[in-house]
Amino acid sequence: ELLQAEVLGKHPLQNRWALWFFKNDKSKMWQANLRLVTKFSTVEDFWALYSHIQLASKLAAGCDYSLFKDGIEPMWEDNQNKRGGRWLITLARQQRHTELDRFWLDTLLCLIGEMFDEYSDEVCGAVINIRTKGDKIAIWTREAENREGVTHIGRVYKEHLGLSQKVAIGYQAHADTATKSGCLGKTKFVL
């Protein structure tokens, strides 16, 4: 695959990535609404895909995009996700039209560019949720107890998004989010 990419003059990525799309059809089970769109493993194929899909800010409420390493499904229950967690960015409603698409694109670039250095292997993927009450973007990592790795990823992510020091982001373990009551999630780390 690497040779093929190079022969074609494309830039190979460290990982093959899978883009998923979720549309909330209440007449179906949750998993039936989650669809694999396609997979890619070069920079050029990423851009070809990105330029062909709808911007996140134009999706209907209840939709999600997810980008995960090949072999990892975008759900807590996946073996590679279940001990992990996520750095969560919650946006105000007005940010959908000003910053959402930029934040999501920067998130995707962090992933495919392996911008978390030696901790890039800890990254599983990223999810964007389009919701009426406020959109959310999250980077998912594989091991919530890996403080060093999780905080490095959070620090680099926050820097790449250009969030000011006054804006706090929190990391939640999936195990805690799955058992939470109401809308209060337990935050393991804050930056």
Partner: peptide, 20 residues
């Protein structure tokens, strides 16, 4: 040996023919 790309490089090639 890890394949890393920075943001500027990735954005620079967004509209190259092979990407469209």
């Amino acid at each position: 040996g890890k394949k890393q790309y920075d943001r500027e490089f990735l954005l620079d090639i967004q509209f190259m023919p092979a990407c469209i």
